[in-house]
Amino acid sequence: MKNEWPLWEIFIRSQHGLAHRHVGSLHAPDEEMAIKNARDVYTRRNEGVSIWAVRSADVVASAPGDKEPLFEPANSKIYRHPTFFPMPDEVKHL
């Protein structure tokens, strides 16, 4: 039991979608098989029109323990949302 096929993360963009979504992972020996296997396993029900396969080892993720320092600062910056600025009703196209 050695020489396991590497693990890949699969992303699919749907017909109407704007971005690829992560749908799952699979093992494949190389890029071509990764795409073929992804098509076989993750697109049986018209889930999408485009497949990205990325070696799992190449995915860099933020550490769960860093959630606070990374994402908390944005909570207080609500002026980044348009709704922070009420506009007079008479003024159009803003």
């Binding site: 039991m1 396991e4 396993v41 049986r44």
Partner: peptide, 26 residues
């Protein structure tokens, strides 16, 4: 085919816990 796919989703979920596919099959 679907059942094969279900096996894959579940093996993938198990692998996130640090066990390899080969180990599970063994």
């Amino acid at each position: 085919q679907d059942e094969g796919g279900h096996g894959l989703y579940l093996y993938s979920a198990a692998e996130t816990l640090g066990v390899s596919r080969d180990q599970m099959v063994e």
